[in-house]
């Protein structure tokens, strides 16, 4: 790795960004980034930048003044970008859980969960995941059967499993299903079932159903979520923006609201289904 890299910021009319980018890519083998009114070229290869600048001079001349095109060249300090990224992601603690990326060490006395921020949502850093982890920490007991609807990275089911529950997971996004499987494997944990789709693809009933989705979806699938919950069981609902809370409360008004957690503008609601069903 070199100590410096060269950055070329090319300013042009927004309408022509794609075409100018295409032109650049004919003279330059690495990647480029788009800004609103500019293209950013970064390279450690001085000769490659010089060749590109020569080509840009020719293009600029042929465009005359019809399309604006100018650029600035600066040298910037290079870094170990992976290290910089890794340093920017810190472990979090919620309830009994210690959620950490794989490059950090476990913490004694806390339940360890390893999740690297990746393609599926749910690394524990979002307010809703954080609050759900707190709820899982309080309400999930060993031997419970738990369903995580909209599992994303699988972090909540993983947390429930770490507390001794038997867990099922589902998500309509195939990427999330794959990611959840990988995260269970990385944490040496097992799930009972996982499927692509929603909670209507099973007839099973659960002690705890977790759904950290968004308010509108929660309202839409409210009857299914309730049907999947055992009499006396609980529903942990999250992903609810404060301004949408009333609508969700209305959709679940035949259950008992046991607890409400607010973190930033996000609400988590914990409901209990009556023992008589």
């Amino acid at each position: 790795m070199q100590n410096e890299y060269i950055e070329l910021q090319l300013l042009t009319d927004e309408a022509y960004l794609d075409l100018i980018a295409d032109f650049i890519m004919q003279h330059y083998d690495e990647g480029i980034e788009y800004g609103n009114d500019r293209l950013i070229v970064r390279s450690e290869d001085e000769a490659a930048i010089a060749r590109l600048e020569a080509a840009l001079e020719i293009l600029k001349a042929s465009l005359e003044t019809r399309i604006p095109l100018q650029w600035e060249k600066t040298r910037k300090p290079n870094e170990d970008w992976i290290k910089r990224y890794q340093a920017s992601v810190t472990p979090i603690r919620s309830g009994d859980f210690y959620i950490r990326p794989s490059w950090y060490e476990a913490k004694e006395g806390l339940i360890d969960i390893v999740i690297d921020p990746a393609l599926a949502f749910g690394s524990g850093h979002h307010a809703t995941t954080y609050s759900c982890l707190e709820a899982v920490s309080t309400y999930v007991l060993a031997g419970d059967e738990v369903l995580d609807v909209g599992c994303g990275s699988g972090i909540l089911a993983l947390a429930a499993r770490k507390r001794g529950a038997t867990v099922d997971l589902c998500d309509t996004d195939p990427l999330a299903v794959e990611s959840a499987k990988e995260n269970f494997e990385r944490n040496d944990e097992t799930f009972r079932r996982i499927w692509e789709g929603s909670a209507d693809k099973t007839d099973a009933v659960y002690d705890i159903v977790i759904a950290n989705i968004i308010a509108d979806i929660l309202k839409m699938i409210a009857p299914v979520l309730k049907a999947r919950t055992k009499p006396g069981g609980r529903l942990i609902l999250s992903g609810i923006l404060d301004k949408k809370e009333a609508g969700v409360q209305e959709a679940f008004s035949n259950l008992v609201l046991e607890r409400r957690i607010q973190k930033e503008e996000w609400i988590t609601l914990i409901y209990r289904k009556d023992s008589n069903g």
């Binding site: 790795m1 890299y5 980018a21 890519m25 083998d29 690495e30 990647g31 480029i32 980034e33 788009y34 950013i40 070229v41 970064r42 390279s43 450690e44 910037k76 290079n78 870094e79 970008w81 992976i82 910089r84 990224y85 920017s88 992601v89």
Partner: peptide
Amino acid sequence: KMMIPAGQANPSPPVGPALGQRG
């Protein structure tokens, strides 16, 4: 948005700074 040669993304510039700066 970026434009990257297929199959050749790596942590050096230009991809490293673009992604690293954004976490």
